[in-house]
Amino acid sequence: LKKVVALYDYMPMNANDLQLRKGDEYFILEESNLPWWRARDKNGQEGYIPSNYVTEAE
């Protein structure tokens, strides 16, 4: 899975979204639905995130 790091905080707009915290790492599960990607956080929560809020992890 592709790993990304959040560049900004993101508060979910609806139940399908995943909250982002700046500096945290996330795994990308699906990239087909631009600009929204399906992601999983370190706690196993899954949801959609804005792809322009993250960058690929080193």
Rank of each mutant, 00 (worst) to 15 (best):
K2Q: 05
N52P: 05
T55R: 14
V5D: 01
N33H: 12
T55Y: 10
R21D: 05
Y10M: 04
L18N: 00
T55A: 13
R38A: 05
N33A: 12
T55K: 13
K42N: 09
E31A: 12
K2I: 07
Y48D: 06
D41K: 02
L29M: 08
A57F: 12
Q45K: 14
L18S: 00
N33V: 10
N14C: 15
W36I: 10
R38S: 05
G44M: 06
L20E: 00
L7Q: 05
A39Q: 00
A15S: 12
N33P: 14
A6N: 00
E56D: 13
E30L: 07
L20F: 02
N43I: 07
N14M: 09
L29T: 07
W37E: 03
P35T: 15
I49R: 00
L29R: 03
A6I: 01
Y26D: 00
D9V: 02
V4I: 04
F27H: 07
Q45R: 14
D9H: 05
W36Y: 15
D17E: 15
L34N: 15
N14S: 13
P35Y: 15
L20V: 04
M11Q: 12
L29Q: 03
N14K: 12
V54N: 01
R38T: 07
Y48V: 06
L18H: 01
Y48C: 12
M13Y: 09
N16C: 15
A15L: 10
W36E: 05
A6W: 01
L7W: 03
E56N: 12
Y10K: 04
P12L: 02
E31Q: 12
V54P: 00
A15Y: 10
L34D: 15
D9M: 03
A15P: 14
K42D: 05
K3W: 09
V5P: 00
N33S: 13
R21Y: 13
N43K: 09
G23R: 03
Y8H: 09
I49G: 01
E46C: 06
G44T: 02
K22E: 07
P50N: 12
L1E: 06
I28K: 02
Y48G: 03
K3T: 08
L20H: 00
L29V: 10
G23T: 02
D41R: 02
L20Q: 00
P12E: 03
L20S: 00
Q45N: 15
E31K: 10
L18D: 00
P50Q: 06
G44L: 04
R38C: 09
N14D: 10
L29Y: 06
N43M: 12
S32L: 10
D9Q: 03
E25Q: 10
Y26L: 07
I28P: 01
K2E: 03
K2M: 08
Q19I: 08
K42E: 08
S32V: 08
E25K: 07
F27D: 07
M13W: 07
Y53V: 04
A6G: 02
E46D: 05
R38M: 10
V5Y: 11
G47A: 01
N52I: 10
R21H: 13
K22V: 08
P12S: 07
Y10I: 03
N16Y: 13
Q19D: 04
K22Y: 05
G47K: 01
V54W: 02
G44S: 04
L1G: 08
K22P: 03
Y48A: 05
S51C: 12
I49C: 03
L7M: 09
E46S: 06
Y8E: 07
Y53L: 10
Y8D: 06
P35S: 15
A57H: 10
L34I: 08
R38Y: 15
L20T: 02
A57V: 15
L1T: 07
L1F: 12
E25I: 15
R38L: 15
V4H: 03
D17L: 13
L29H: 03
R21I: 15
L34H: 15
Y53H: 07
M11G: 05
L7D: 03
E56Y: 14
D24N: 08
Y53M: 11
R38H: 08
L18E: 00
A6L: 01
N52M: 12
F27L: 11
I49D: 00
N43T: 10
S32F: 09
L7E: 03
L20I: 05
G23H: 05
